[in-house]
Design a protein around this nucleic acid. Structure first.
Lengths: 193, 193
DNA sequence: CGCGGGTTTGATGATGCTCAAGCCCGGTGG
DNA sequence: CCACCGGGCTTGAGCATCATCAAACCCGCG
């Protein structure tokens, strides 16, 4: 269970992990299984854990007053789940996070996360992740104001083809900010070329 | 010139600054004046400096193949300018950054920035900024996929009223991802209520 | 006075949304 | 084995929203 995480940390850092480091990491990350559709966090709660996804697929989304869901994030194994803002600021989150597929995750509290900062590889990984996260968000903002849906979908298909395989199209549509009907037609047009 | 920055750092950290800290900071941040419309960075270059804006207003934007500009960021005094991705990864940026008003900034290289990490208040401030930046981007992504233009504009007006006073509406429109005509009509509608 | 940048207004067309219906397919139960 | 069902995807018609293009307006400034 934890081996995947350890491998992940190694691949995202340049320094080595000692046996005691690995020990500490194993103790800090607690395994948890989630059934299909099981909530990991619900809107209104404070996000107490970050989850490293070992297996499965999860989604983070808000629900508006008309009951419509808006996907802000779709993640699969090797990615993280949890609302960063709520987690670090201890404020209630506005997002639901649930398992789209049956999933296995490793969860960690903020306190334990802070503990782990003493491990160089961990803090290195964390800052690298923060960076990548920020870069990805920046790109998404940029494409949302400058690219038409067609291009946004094509980019997504190129950058994260795994997501298209794991999530149904109406979730991808929501992630892109359009309705499922529009995405269906966009795809139809793309195929013709 | 540097006093504003020092005050800023203090207000974004909990630890104190020694005289030598302040000394080091003053040496690392180099003052620079920018005329109206002067480039701070151009697309294609590597972003060599981060700029803390002491006075003035700057914008970060891309230019598409039709020559249209897309504002990804608008900043005024007390904020930062510079493409994070290019700055940290040393890759060429796709954004132009220029001064909308005549501006005074304090610029710092990546190497000097790393030096300053040894100062607790600085690293604390940096991580706080990274967080706030990520939170703001997350919100912008969320609103771009879930809110109509009307609400996005109203939120902007409420959260950052300074921006509306400092930048003309066609830049605000671009920032929101709509044309100036649409924003003009949106405003017209909002006033009627 | 004339000019330039910014904003507004109007007409027209493209794009995306809503609502409604139908299709496809895998799963369930008779 | 077949009928039925539900979730997901597609298709179509009508409507709302937004972009585009063009013109006019407003105002500060040389």
């Amino acid at each position: 269970m934890h081996e995947f995480l350890i491998k992940y940390i190694k691949s995202h850092s340049t320094t080595l992990l000692s046996e005691s480091d690995i020990q500490l990491i194993n103790e800090s990350f607690i395994p948890k299984k989630l059934r299909k559709r099981q909530y990991f966090q619900q809107a209104g709660e404070v996000c107490k854990y970050m989850a490293f996804i070992v297996k499965g697929a999860m989604r983070q989304y808000s629900v508006d007053d008309k009951g419509a869901e808006h996907m802000v994030r779709l993640s699969i194994e090797g990615w993280w789940a949890g609302d960063r803002e709520s987690f670090t600021m201890l404020t209630p989150t506005i997002y639901n996070i649930d398992a789209w597929e049956e999933s296995e995750v490793l969860i960690i509290t903020k306190a334990d996360m802070n503990q782990l900062r003493s491990i160089p590889a961990m803090s290195e990984m964390a800052s690298q992740l923060d960076n990548n996260h920020a870069f990805a968000l920046q790109k998404r903002v940029h494409s949302s104001i400058s690219d038409p849906v067609e291009k946004r979908y094509a980019d997504l298909a190129k950058t994260y083809p795994q997501l298209l395989e794991r999530f149904p199209q109406h979730l991808i549509a929501s992630y892109l900010g359009v309705t499922k009907e529009t995405l269906s037609r966009v795809r139809h047009n793309l195929i013709k070329k």
